[in-house]
Design a protein around this nucleic acid. Structure first.
Lengths: 224, 224
DNA sequence: AGTTTAATGATAGTAATACTATTATTATTG
DNA sequence: CAATAATAATAGTATTACTATCATTAAACT
């Protein structure tokens, strides 16, 4: 009999999938292998035929779980935001200082703490979050999808961190803007550091990103 | 006989195209109509067949100008950065205060000043820059493309504004990071305001974005 | 144990996409 | 007016993004 403090289970809107991938081993394989395959070949080159070959199943079977590869990306990014939510709870329980909470949040958003969770490679996941996650909403049918609540998990993280900001300064006017600027900024800087270094300023300090965005945020928030 | 103070001509790396679209009327139509068509249907739905029908030419002809639709997007985004460079010159000539220069730069990045240039709809262009431009580098072959200098125009804008920042504070450590955070932030906030409003904080003030990012930048830069 | 039900595998097929190739026609240049 | 280049017209191919069908296996119920 196992004893678990937190049982992590992704809380993802059912409109994203046709059949819940958490309901079967094959479903789990679809998610974990998608992450690895998208990491290897990129989302544009990724398709259900290649994925089915990697898993050892058929294209038709994967289509029973997801309508198309875009919905799968939506699932993977939602899973990531669930994971972040879980990490935020872990890192911020019993922390009373909201400045520290904010810094911890930025820390969670900047590095994947662990290497592996169940069969999911968190390093690969974080990598594709940086390079592919914005493709889940930068699409023509974003408004339709949004009606079905498919961006719920991202919005929730933004709301949680916005609330921390408002605890630091209840009069601050732009908490959501600041949060999304920091989140998307982190993703971009990670990507630039790897591929377009002249667009960023990577240093030897492993915490340079955390420090940059924490400084940016905290000074903006405390501006009178 | 026409008299022009500035003759605007895009300075775009020839590796992006097969045949220079500025060299013919058809080429110009390819660019201007691409912008309108991508604006209408989004980059994923956009293809050379639809574009050729809109222009009244054939798919094969467009393929003589561009290898594929991704290169065309690269051309359009590069054209935008050329336009921004031109606007920066226009707005910052004779401005001595570098704080003002920075604010003007952010202004240029936030709103398309004019409505139309030649046959190009600048409103549509700016709109697709916000939603599609990051797809020009968030791709698997980014390193190959980068070797050919296809991101030259974006890098140049980042360098120009970074230099302004360094004039404000020569000791500032992260000028490029700050500039790309602001640029990509502006694009995201514009998009969120239109499609995912709970991720941003749009106000009645038409200058709220300019003010937010100028404040953010200037306080970060002047931090001792 | 045996029957129903559900999930997956195997296979096939279609419409659309992303091109490439070929030849004819028109426009431009020398 | 000839030569050259650009475009139009047409056709064709490989791949992608699915959908459909039916056989097989596994799970669940009685």
């Amino acid at each position: 009999m196992e004893f678990e403090l937190f049982k992590f289970s992704a809380n993802i809107k059912s409109d994203i999938f046709l059949k819940d991938p958490e309901s079967s081993q094959l479903g789990s394989a679809i998610i974990s292998q998608s992450i690895n395959l998208i990491y290897d070949i990129g989302f544009e080159e990724f398709n259900f035929r290649k994925l089915s070959q990697q898993i050892g199943t058929t294209e038709a079977t994967i289509y029973r779980y997801f309508e198309n590869k875009h919905k799968l990306l939506l699932y993977v990014t939602s899973w990531y935001w669930c994971w972040v939510e879980y990490q935020l709870v872990l890192h911020n329980t019993n922390i009373v200082d909201y400045n520290v909470r904010l810094k911890n949040a930025i820390k969670v958003l900047t590095v994947p703490h662990d290497h592996q969770y169940a069969d999911i490679n968190l390093q690969n996941l974080f990598n594709i979050i940086c390079s592919e996650s914005c493709k889940s909403y930068l699409i023509k049918n974003v408004d339709d999808l949004n009606k079905y609540g498919v961006y719920y998990n991202y919005k929730k993280i933004v709301a949680i961190i916005s609330d921390i900001i408002l605890k630091v300064n209840p009069a601050y006017k732009y908490p959501h803007m600041l949060v999304t600027t920091v989140i998307e900024g982190i993703h971009h800087q990670k990507y630039f550091a790897e591929h377009l270094p002249s667009l960023t300023d990577k240093t030897d300090d492993p915490d340079y990103l955390i420090n940059f965005y924490y400084q940016l945020a905290i000074t903006a928030i405390n501006l009178k």
